Amino acid sequence: MATVRFNAHGRTWDVEVPVGTSVLGAAKQVEAPEGDACGGVCGCSTCHVYVLKGRELLSEAEEDEEDIMDKAFDVRANSRLGCQARIEKDGVLEVEITRESLDAYYNEHPQAVDPRKTR
């Protein structure tokens, strides 16, 4: 099992998942606000996250993912698409949900309260 910690707007979500789970799949299990406008099929960049810890636990990025990342905002060396980043080893993974992903999530879930707008 792997532990995934999601960080976004000062809050954390922790979840234990089996090896083989995608980062996006883990986010859905704890309702962390990670976007997935394409449904998690590598057709957009709304599940863009920054891997803060545990990058070595993840599958390598493939060409399809790298092509989509070219369309993402504020791409960094530790950027991954949550739908494509699969956990391959037990351990602790920590990711920050990007602004792009948060924007997509709250657009996709209008019933969810966006804490960035309540301040």
Rank of each mutant, 00 (worst) to 15 (best):
M1K: 13
M1G: 14
M1E: 13
A2Q: 02
T3Y: 05
V4R: 01
F6W: 06
A8H: 07
A8S: 15
A8P: 03
G10F: 11
T12A: 12
T12D: 13
W13I: 10
V15T: 14
E16Q: 14
E16G: 03
V17Y: 05
V17F: 09
V19N: 09
G20Y: 12
G20N: 08
G20A: 11
G20K: 04
T21F: 09
V23K: 00
L24I: 07
L24V: 08
L24D: 02
G25L: 05
A26R: 01
A26N: 03
A26T: 02
A27Y: 01
K28Q: 13
Q29H: 00
Q29V: 10
V30F: 04
V30D: 06
A32N: 07
P33E: 02
P33M: 06
E34K: 08
D36M: 12
D36S: 15
A37P: 00
A37D: 11
A37G: 03
A37V: 10
C38S: 08
G39N: 07
G39E: 06
G40M: 02
G40S: 09
V41W: 02
V41R: 00
C42R: 08
C42W: 01
G43I: 06
G43D: 08
C44G: 04
T46L: 06
C47R: 07
C47W: 04
H48S: 11
Y50N: 15
V51D: 12
L52S: 10
K53C: 10
G54D: 07
R55P: 06
R55E: 15
E56F: 05
E56Q: 15
L58G: 06
L58W: 06
S59M: 10
S59A: 15
E60T: 10
E62Y: 00
E63A: 01
D67C: 00
D67Q: 10
M69T: 00
M69C: 02
D70W: 00
K71A: 11
K71R: 09
A72I: 04
D74C: 08
D74F: 09
D74L: 09
V75E: 12
R76L: 15
R76T: 13
A77V: 13
A77H: 12
N78H: 12
N78D: 15
S79L: 11
R80F: 11
G82F: 00
C83E: 07
Q84D: 03
R86W: 12
E88N: 09
K89L: 13
G91I: 10
G91H: 06
V92P: 00
V92M: 09
L93G: 10
E94T: 14
V95S: 07
E96F: 08
I97E: 03
I97Q: 04
T98P: 02
R99S: 13
R99K: 15
R99A: 14
E100A: 14
E100K: 02
E100F: 05
S101A: 13
S101F: 10
L102N: 01
L102M: 15
D103W: 06
A104P: 00
Y105P: 01
Y106N: 07
N107A: 14
E108I: 04
E108V: 03
E108S: 14
H109C: 03
H109F: 08
H109N: 15
P110H: 04
Q111H: 08
Q111Y: 04
Q111L: 08
V113P: 02
V113K: 12
V113L: 12
D114S: 06
P115K: 01
R116I: 07
K117R: 12
K117A: 10
T118N: 07
